[in-house]
């Protein structure tokens, strides 16, 4: 059974729908990428799934209906989000950001989790007492991922993690997402404009074009499709 199942979901911001009848699924333990150009509706898709904007249709997490749940309730059910632009809480320190990520979960293991993410991203450890607003873009992205993971989610949504980062940093960041997937079996749905790098770590991909989502295809298949290469991979 799919971990995340979206069927015929429509959403928008009041005047008309941006997304029309989107159908998508993510299985446990897999990375799925949604590719799309600027304005295709990628962020709208993320905001609709996470409950930040109203949506119609089916949204299920692990068989539970979350289509009418509020954004904070969805996070508490185990769907964590790395928002576009990283959503850094600039007035809190790095460590406070991470602790805020763990607020939704009860029980122990906070210290171990902090340790785990400081080990994964040593630069966060160096800056743990600094205001998060002072971090570089790449560090803020690492913080956003770690903070989402601090809630011990069942699944992770990533909204354009490469935004504003250098190619080298983007490479590093996607490698770490791949490791999170491999080591923790974490299912990840990532929307991304940088198709090339996203397809490297994904198992399957979807193409989002002006609010409509095509069928999913294996990631390798995308990478070898000439028309896709021309349109999305810049080749």
């Amino acid at each position: 059974m799919s971990l995340l199942r979206i069927d015929d979901m429509s959403a928008g911001y009041g005047a008309g729908d941006v997304l029309r009848g989107v159908t998508l699924s993510v299985d446990a333990g897999e990375i799925v990428v949604v590719l799309g150009a600027n304005g295709a509706g990628k962020t709208t898709l993320m905001r609709a799934v996470s409950g930040m904007i109203p949506r119609r249709g089916t949204v299920e997490l692990d068989g539970e209906d979350i289509a009418r749940s509020s954004a904070d309730a969805i996070v508490r059910r185990g769907l964590a989000q790395v928002p576009q632009g990283r959503g850094t809480i600039v007035d809190l320190t790095v460590e406070e950001n991470l602790r805020a990520g763990a607020l939704v979960r009860k029980g122990k293991g906070l210290a171990e989790d902090l340790d785990r993410w400081y080990t994964t991203y040593p630069r966060l450890a160096e800056r743990r007492r600094q205001k998060a607003g002072l971090l570089s873009g790449g560090e803020q992205q690492m913080l956003a991922i770690s903070r989402a993971m601090m809630s011990r989610p069942r699944m992770l949504l990533c909204d354009e993690p490469s935004l504003g980062l250098s190619p080298l940093l983007t490479e590093e960041l996607f490698a770490s997402l791949s490791r999170i997937n491999g080591e923790l079996g974490m299912a990840i749905l990532v929307v991304e404009q940088n198709a090339m790098i996203a397809l490297e770590i994904a198992r399957r991909g979807y193409l989002l074009e002006v609010g409509s989502l095509g069928d999913s295809r294996p990631a390798d298949d995308f990478a070898s499709d000439d028309s896709i290469r021309a349109a999305y991979l810049g080749q």
């Binding site: 930040m52 007035d91 805020a100």
Partner: peptide
């Protein structure tokens, strides 16, 4: 306190706070 952390997170960035599961 955890509650205080939630309050400060909400004060600084309400949208992010919601996405961390905080009942803003």
């Amino acid at each position: 306190t955890r509650l205080g952390l939630a309050m400060r997170a909400t004060a600084s960035n309400p949208e992010s706070a919601r996405l961390l599961g905080i009942r803003v």
